[in-house]
Design a protein around this nucleic acid. Structure first.
Length: 578
RNA sequence: GAUCCCGUAGCUCAGUUGGAUAGAGUAUCGGUUUCCGAAGCCGAGGGUCAAGAGUUCGAUUCUCUUCGGGAUCACCA
């Protein structure tokens, strides 16, 4: 309908014999928006306000002319000029009802498959080997996964890339410590607590000279392809990722082992990259290191920013790896959109790496490279989040706590759910609440970690949306009629209908902007609109004839399906009962 | 020193190519269950959109300055 209206306006402008030409740039910015206030109709355009100045006309007079030249359209019942010169459009209710019936008949619920499918590489999650996932990992993991699902739903090809931290000098120390632990324990290793493992390894490294020496030797051996060290390293990677996989499954995140492209994956490309950068005159030797100087950025001294791509000792840094990433993802995977769900602190570093990759010709201008940055998780004191003892909160502990609070809540409510169904409900609510708490915030801003907010089940939370869904399912369990044609006969129905029809726009925003909170906002508003409809409009006892009940059942069914689909794009499950 | 991000109700947050009276949740207070699930719904109070200036028909949104918070800037990632 939006497109329809904007093309009507364009035709009207064409038909108008205007004194001066309209700058095409202005016409491209022609906007038709959904009205925020129902008094202002269904859609509104500010075109007259935009054009008034360049055409030297009074905005309201111009709006009047535009309206008088609009081609006739059966779906528009009324237009009016409002305020300084907005044109408001009122849509025929039957049109809206028809749109909803079409959505009901469509598996995609009105979300169109893209005409230009892209190959997208989505880089998200990225935990470190030999460390446990902490609460702050939830951001990249959950936001990235939601965007990936939305992309696929719209018909794009997505390659998930879990850029795990599986390389670096710390592995000498970790291998040496793993070796020590294996020698000490005869009855197999229990490495359920990687935090302790890493801490103890570090302690050995700092206090035991022999150990430290061995650790340093192992680093060299590992990087030169020594079989023993490589096996030990692989063991660490596998143990960590097995543990993380259980978290992913628990979180309902679509990552699996086949999506792992860790730092080590790009390792063998690095010498070639540096050589290539040197040949292309981008990298120069400076103080023994290979450095690219970027005029586009400034370093501490105000001169061109030096970016080291190879250290004095021949080692490589993460910038080199990120350059290799771009080369591989564009050159080998043929991606035309790269999305990095990475902490905002790495912004400058990423920009520098990408600029070098562009200059080296690894990514043509047509390839989009985007940093889907997110802010930091802060404590209640506004400082970077830490526990009282200065450590991090394990993601696993957060999920455990969420589940125990939900179980407690079910007990308070005297829930009769039992066994596996109850366990499933507890998981769905708990995981949904935790994920939604993160997904519903604008990813750009820092945010405050708070147990109670994260585990809240009221207001703008996943359980509220799940509750709306369960309520609808409950109606269908009691219904004797089946859903039928939609007839919109009251304010509450109209508002629900109008909100339902906006689902495709909400999904499109997630795909375009990589911001799942916009979908959260939509689903929350949809649920609120449904709740009001539910209070105002009896469904099963709707009236004398069956028509009204059948129409309302259709509205219920569509609401349920949009909620289920929308939440599914966020990686959150719904339940028949809760 | 330079660059980037942020500052919206007591608290937590929406508000994104500038648009109509700045919105939710939470907390507080009040109302609402013989009627499809009260994790709900309705209402009240709560704001100098950090401050100031500029751009314009119109600024929370764009520009500049100031204040406050955070991040980044050569061999960690």
């Amino acid at each position: 309908m939006k497109e329809q209206i904007s093309s009507l306006i364009k035709e009207s402008l064409k038909a108008l014999s205007l004194k001066s030409e309209i700058p095409p740039a202005l016409l491209q910015n022609l906007r038709v928006d959904r009205s925020k206030d129902k008094e202002h109709g269904d859609f509104a355009s500010n075109i007259a306000l935009v054009l008034a100045k360049p055409l030297h006309q009074n905005p309201r007079a111009l709006a009047e002319q535009i309206i008088s030249h609009l081609p006739p359209c059966a779906d528009i019942v009324k237009t009016e000029i409002a305020g300084p010169g907005f044109i408001n459009f009122f849509i025929r209710r039957e049109n809206l009802a028809a749109t909803l019936m079409a959505m009901l008949a469509d598996d995609q619920l009105g979300v169109r498959q893209t005409a230009q499918p892209e190959t997208v590489v989505a880089d998200y999650s990225a935990p470190n080997v030999a460390k446990e996932m902490a609460v702050h990992h939830i951001r990249s993991t959950v936001i990235g996964d939601a965007v990936v699902r939305a992309l696929e739903f719209c018909g794009h090809k997505v390659i998930r890339a879990n850029h795990i931290g599986d390389w670096g000098t710390q592995f000498g120390m970790l291998i040496a410590y793993l070796e020590r632990r294996e020698n000490e324990s005869s009855a197999g290793l229990d490495l359920s607590d990687f935090e302790a493992f890493y801490r103890e390894a570090k302690a050995c490294y700092d206090s035991d000279l022999d150990f430290a020496q061995k650790a340093r030797r192992y680093v060299v051996l590992l990087q030169s392809g020594d079989e023993y060290c490589h096996n030990m390293w692989q063991k660490l990677v596998r143990m960590t990722m097995d543990q993380n996989q259980r978290i992913y499954e628990r979180l309902n995140v679509t990552l699996s082992n086949k999506d792992i492209y860790g730092e080590s994956f790009y390792n063998e490309m690095l010498p070639q990259i540096v050589q290539d950068l040197e040949q292309k005159g981008l990298a120069v030797r400076d103080e023994g290191a290979m450095v690219v100087f970027l005029d586009e950025f400034k370093g501490k001294d105000g001169k061109a920013l030096p970016v080291i791509v190879q250290k004095q000792d021949g080692g490589y840094l993460y910038t080199t790896t990120d350059i290799a990433c771009v080369k591989y993802r564009v050159g080998t995977l043929h991606a035309n959109r790269l999305m990095y769900f990475v902490d905002s602190r790495q912004h400058q570093h990423l920009e520098a790496a990408w600029l070098i990759a562009r200059k080296a010709g690894y990514a043509p201008d047509s390839v989009k490279i985007e940093h889907e940055a997110f802010g930091m998780m802060l404590g209640k004191d506004g400082k970077p989040f830490k526990t009282r003892s200065g450590g991090t909160v394990k993601l696993k502990d957060l999920l455990d706590e969420a589940e125990s609070r939900v179980e407690q809540l079910l007990q308070q409510r005297g829930s009769t759910l039992e066994g596996e169904e109850r366990a499933q409900v507890v998981r769905n609510i708990a995981i949904g609440a935790v994920k939604y708490a993160d997904l519903s915030k604008n990813r750009l801003t820092d945010y405050v970690f708070d147990w109670d907010l994260m585990l809240s089940f009221e207001g703008n939370t996943a359980p509220y949306l799940q509750y709306a869904y369960s309520r609808i399912r409950s109606i269908f369990r009691k219904a004797t009629l089946s859903a039928g044609p939609i007839v919109l006969s009251s304010d509450a129905e109209n508002e629900l209908a109008s909100k339902l029809s906006a689902f495709p726009e909400a999904v499109a925003q997630v795909v375009d902007k990589a911001m799942p909170h916009l979908l959260c906002t939509y689903l929350y508003e949809l649920s609120g609109t449904f709740m009001r409809f539910y209070e105002a409009c009896p469904v099963l006892k709707a009236g004398v004839g069956p028509e009204l009940a059948q129409s309302r059942l259709s509205l219920c069914e569509l609401t349920a399906r949009v909620l289920r689909q929308g939440l599914s794009l966020l990686g959150i499950n719904v339940m028949e009962q809760m």
